[in-house]
């Protein structure tokens, strides 16, 4: 089978977020980049499907030249090749992101056959638009499910499980289909050293799509003012235990 997995490179923020002076982006001067947790699991799921059924996994991103690193990470895990839609670093809104991805899918399918599955994250780590997968499915006329925590493929159908109160809801889709994956669907592997070496020579097909007018137009980012607290230090080391128990007792949780 042929599986496409779409990933987005996002800044690896940890502590307080700092913005660029125009407030349109996170200041990444001192930050690395990563792919979101849902997408990490989507890559793992793609690799497992290929290991189980044979075929080829392809990874795609729309993002700046630095996103090549996240593509190489996926290649190191067993994905065969990559498609890089290179941007100048400005964000693309969900509709234009979808249009560029759909065009790339059509071109790849014309050249090397249809994808049985397109895997996406449930929502992007940074913008969390909750829609690119749904829009890809709509544009290609393929069924889409989101929030998926269990996936298996047999006889041209995908069985997809979603957490529900007291159990799991099951969807069964005919392939080709689009599936939005949630973190927790699997435990992603770490890349091996030989995997990293092999990734360096795997093909990455780069192109530069034009960025259309944005209909969900980012104007400004704002870091909400949380009540900046300073924790009361109850003590150092195990000797603090009585002070902790007194707090627990005052809070009524003992």
């Amino acid at each position: 089978m042929k599986v496409l997995v779409c990933i987005k490179s996002v800044p690896a923020v940890a502590g307080r977020i700092t913005l660029t002076p125009d407030a349109r982006a996170i200041d990444t001067k001192h930050l690395g980049f990563a792919i979101g947790p849902h997408e990490e699991c989507a890559v793992e799921e793609a690799v497992r499907l290929i290991e189980a059924h044979g075929g080829e996994a392809v990874v795609l991103t729309l993002g700046p030249s630095t996103a090549l690193e996240q593509l190489r990470d996926a290649l190191a895990l067993g994905v065969a090749r990559a498609i890089h839609l290179v941007t100048d670093g400005q964000e693309w809104d969900p509709e234009s992101t979808t249009a560029a991805i759909v065009e790339a899918i059509r071109a790849d399918e014309a050249a090397s056959g249809p994808f049985d599955l397109v895997l996406v994250g449930n929502e992007a780590g940074d913008s969390a638009d909750y829609q690119v997968g749904v829009r890809i499915g709509r544009a290609l006329g393929r069924p889409v499910v989101t929030a998926i925590k269990g996936l298996s493929v047999a006889d041209g159908r995908a069985r997809c499980e979603q957490e529900a109160s007291g159990g799991r809801d099951v969807f069964e889709l005919p392939l080709p289909a689009v599936v939005g994956v949630l973190e927790g669907i699997n435990l992603p592997r770490f890349p091996s050293v030989p995997g990293r070496l092999r990734a360096k020579s795997k093909p990455v097909e780069a192109s530069e799509p034009a960025r259309p007018a944005q209909r969900l137009e980012l104007q400004r980012l704002v870091v909400p003012q949380g009540a900046a607290k300073q924790a009361v230090v109850l003590g150092h080391g195990p000797d603090a235990a009585p002070a902790v128990v007194e707090v627990l007792s005052n809070l009524g949780v003992l």
Partner: peptide, 15 residues
Amino acid sequence: QRWGGTLQEEAALHG
């Protein structure tokens, strides 16, 4: 909300 609410986005919606 972005990033689970740790960041907010002000945006125009053209439609």
